[in-house]
Simulated assay, not measured.
Amino acid sequence: MDVRSLPVALTAIMKQRGWTQQQLGRELGVSQAWISRVCNGVADTGLARAKELLARVGWEVRFTPSVEEPVERREFLSAAASVVFVASAADSDPYLDPDYVRALSDSLARGRYELGGLPLAARALGHVKRVAHLQIGSAGHELRGAASDLMYQAGIALYDAGRLAQSEHAGTIALDLAHQAEDAPARAQAYDALSRVSLYRGDPLRAVRHAQRGLRIPDLPPSRLSSLHMRLGRALACVNGSQREAREALDRALGTSGLSPFAEAALGGDVAIGLSRLGHYDQADRLLREAAAAMAQWSPLFRAQYLGRQVQTAVRADEPALAVHHMHSLTRALPFVGSARVNARVTAIITVTAKWDRIPEVRTARENLRATLPAGSSSA
C-alpha cells in the first residue's frame, strides 16, 4: 500500500491494525493529542522524525519523482520528490522486493544527475555485488526487470566515475536480466549503456554493434529509440568513412517526437557531441548552449558536461574568444559535481588550449580551470 502524506499514513496504519489514536500514540511514543493534530493537518513533523516514527511500526519513507515520464520515468528527475510511505518487508532480503530495487535505481539516478558518479561509485559497486550474487531463483519478471534497471543505473554511475571495466560488467548483468525478464525497453537500455562505455574506451566499432543490436528490438519507446540512434551516430562519427551514416543517425535522433523537456534537452546536447566531431560546429554549439541552459534547472552534472563540450567545440572551430567564454562558465559549474569524465575533459581542455596561451584571456581562463580540478588530477 502506497500513501502520499503522513496524515494518510497514520490513518492507514490505524485502520490496518485496528488501533485507536491512543494505541498508535503508544506504539510511536507520542501523545494521542499529537496524533490527532497530525491527522487533522494542524501539526507537522520533519522528514527525519517521520521516518524514525514510522519505522517503529514497520513502515518506511521512499521518494519517487512526482512527474512521470510518458515512457521512461527515471529519465525525468526535475520535479520535486513526493514522499511515499509504504509498509516495509523487514523479514526478507530487500533486494527481492521489486519496489525497493526500483527505489535504489531512482536514488542512484537522482544522485548522479545532481552530484556526478564519483560520490556514488562505492554504493554502485555494492549494488552490483549484491545483484550479481542474488539468488533470484523463481522470481518473476518484475524483479528481474527492476534488477536490470538497477544494474543500468549502477553501470552509468560507474561510467561517470571512470570505472569502465566495472561499468561494462554492470551493463552485461543488466542485459542478461532484461533478457530473462523479457523486457524489451530494458534490453535496449542495456545496449545503450554498453555502447557508450565501448565508445569511451576507444572501441567505436563495438559501440556501433551494441547500438545496432538495440535498434533491432521492436516497439521501443521514443526516448530509447532516439538515444540508440544518437549512440549509433556518435560511434559512427569516430569510424573513418562513416560520416554520412553518422549524420543520418544523428538526424534520426533529433527527429524523434514525444520526448519530455528533459529528455529532449539531453538528446540535443548528446547529438551535438557527434555533430562537433563531424565538423558541424555552429549547429553543435547551438544545441550545446540550449542543453546547458536547460540543465541548469535539472542536472549540475549534465550542465558541466555540455559546457565542457562547448569549449571543445570552440577549440575545434579555432575560436579562442568563444572558448574563453565557455571556459569561464565551466569553471563556475565544476565545484558542484564529482565526475571523473568531467575532470578528464577539463584536463584535456587545459592541454589543448595551451596553443593559445599567449592570449591573456585564454591564459587566465586556463589558470582558473586548473584551480578547480580536485587534488590528484593531472593537467598541463
Rank of each mutant, 00 (worst) to 15 (best):
L373A: 07
P7V: 05
V346I: 12
A174G: 08
A174E: 02
S36Y: 01
Q166M: 06
E264R: 15
L267F: 04
V30L: 13
A296W: 03
A43G: 05
I13Q: 08
L334Y: 00
D149I: 01
Y191E: 14
L77R: 06
A174F: 01
Y113W: 10
D203R: 14
R187T: 05
Q180W: 02
A87W: 02
S107R: 15
A354T: 15
Y306W: 07
G202R: 09
L330N: 01
A371E: 09
S92A: 14
N240H: 09
A9W: 08
R234P: 01
G46K: 07
Y95C: 02
S378W: 11
D176T: 10
A12L: 13
V362Q: 11
R289G: 12
L118G: 09
L236F: 06
Y100R: 12
G202V: 07
A109V: 09
R231A: 14
Y306C: 04
S198C: 04
L47R: 15
G308F: 01
A161K: 10
H141R: 15
V324I: 13
D97Q: 12
V86S: 13
Y100H: 15
L175P: 01
R163H: 14
T172G: 11
A340I: 00
R196E: 04
R366C: 07
I273G: 00
L322A: 12
A87P: 10
A43D: 13
A291M: 03
P98W: 08
F63E: 14
D2G: 02
E264S: 14
G18K: 06
S379P: 00
R224M: 08
R224G: 00
A296C: 05
R112D: 15
A80L: 13
G58E: 04
S105W: 03
S223G: 05
A146D: 12
T331V: 03
A246C: 08
P98C: 11
M151W: 01
A55G: 09
G308S: 11
A50E: 14
G140H: 08
L6Y: 08
G145C: 04
D44L: 01
H133L: 06
L125G: 13
R309I: 00
L28E: 10
H133C: 02
L278I: 09
L330W: 00
L275V: 10
A80V: 12
A235W: 07
G233R: 10
D97N: 15
V315A: 09
R201A: 08
A50V: 01
C39A: 11
A371H: 09
R341A: 02
R201S: 09
G171P: 02
A266T: 12
A89L: 13
V61N: 05
L301P: 06
L225D: 08
